[in-house]
């Protein structure tokens, strides 16, 4: 088979492969909603409320935290799908003003951030929330 023929065959295979990427809405249903619930309210004391998720972006380490938290980092989503989902969630759960200021996550940023494991999630979260309160 000629090189062009091989190229065409590869292209045909790529086109034939089913696209696994879902929309951010469907990925929220499949990867988040089971615990965070359809409205993001979660379960007090066990599953964090996603309301005003974007407030984490206001403190150092917050942007990294949203990617490194196990629900994000250990999800079966690709870096591109996770970036799209986080951007969608930040707009969905607010605060409302975020739509103007949000610097969207890129797949490359996700690749870099999700790799190092987050050993103590609860302590990291508490530290970020304390910083947020101190800033208020």
């Amino acid at each position: 088979m000629s090189r062009a023929g091989l190229g065409l065959a590869a292209l045909a295979l790529a086109l034939a492969a089913p696209a696994r990427g879902e929309t951010p809405e469907v990925n929220y249903l499949l990867q988040c909603q089971g615990c965070h619930l359809p409205d993001g309210s979660g379960k007090s004391g066990a599953v964090p409320d996603l309301k005003d998720l974007g407030r984490f972006l206001a403190v150092p380490g917050g942007r990294e935290y949203l990617v490194r938290v196990p629900g994000s980092a250990q999800s079966p989503l690709s870096d591109a799908d996770l970036a799209a989902l986080l951007n969608w969630m930040l707009r969905r759960f607010g605060p409302a003003a975020i739509a103007d200021t949000l610097e969207p996550y890129t797949p490359e940023e996700i690749t870099a951030l999700r790799r190092p494991p987050l050993a103590d999630v609860a302590a990291t979260r508490a530290r970020l929330l304390a910083r947020l309160r101190a800033g208020d």
């Binding site: 249903l29 499949l30 909603q33 089971g34 615990c35 619930l37 379960k43 599953v47």
Partner: peptide
């Protein structure tokens, strides 16, 4: 239960 798992 409100907490569930989801699939397709």
């Amino acid at each position: 239960s409100p907490i569930t798992w989801l699939g397709t």
